[in-house]
Amino acid sequence: MRMTYAFKRTYYALGEPVIVEAEGLTKSYGTTTVLDGVDLHVRRGTVFALLGPNGAGKTTTIRILTTLTRPDAGTARVAGHDVVREPTKVRGAISLTGQFAAVDDQQTGRENLTVVGRLMHLGGPAARRRAVDLLDRFDLRDAADRRVKTYSGGMRRRLDLAMSLVSTPEVIFLDEPTTGLDPVSRTTMWDAVRDLVAAGTTIVLTTQYLEEADRLADTVALLHEGRVAVSGSTDAVKARVGGHRLDLGFTTDHDTTRAAALLSARRTDAPLALGLPSDGTATHQHHVLDALRTAGIPVATISTHRPTLDDVFIAFTGGQSPTSPDQAPLDLVTATPYAEDLA
């Protein structure tokens, strides 16, 4: 088996063992190609963030890695097991917290946790003990015997994560874990993720919030049109965009358009503003300002900053960053209920 050999080679070549590895994953729903050859690898004990605009294939990738969807082609191994040939072994080593909180509103927090413990075959008493541990850990002890329908959004999400941890999985998949959460709940979630990583767990998450990836992730992969557009450590990825970004503000839309053409620069999220890669030196700024003055385009403001993941996003997808309010419209016609990004 060629792939098996390739996996082994990667496994031993890297300093730290690879726990999640995918090669050439493809998936289509009808005529819509969602994944078009996705490769990725995640080292044990790290946080890996999958980024991408709506419809880029983030959720489909997660579904394949968690055995919920079969790829059309390509292979993936999680915790040493092939996701297609040994799904039960993969399931024994992972847990998934999906986009939709998978909690029963009519059961209490304790009952939700105990059911999962029983289904993990811990045995009754152990399942109940584990439920108590997790309720304590996720600050749900006071709400343990209340029905989940009375929980806040943050509490539901914490319970959802707690249900993923009943079995102490080796790899935890989190699909947009903080979407729709208030800032306090989001911070609690981030703390929980950091605790898990400190204890040796590997985390694979998807997010629309680039700040989240910036804070949590060791490595990121940016999915664009069904492929990995760029991947690596957050610093390395940012470095590929350029050392700095130069932002220019203008007073009229006409000036902004002319300047964009002149400098081959992109508009930023702010109105009447352009951003372009820069080395951060005064010389480069002079250069740009001179070119604009020669062309007779007045500049209102100028500033430089270090690139963020938003810049990476814009540079590699050629679109708007997912954190901008003006998102690309959702693809409402999906071939199956499990097609990408229903939320």
Binding site: T66, R91, F100, A102, L119
Partner: peptide, 14 residues
């Protein structure tokens, strides 16, 4: 079937 519940159940070894 239409909420996340089925995904959770299916990623359990049951």
């Amino acid at each position: 079937m239409t909420t996340g519940v089925i995904d959770r159940l299916r990623t359990l070894p049951i």
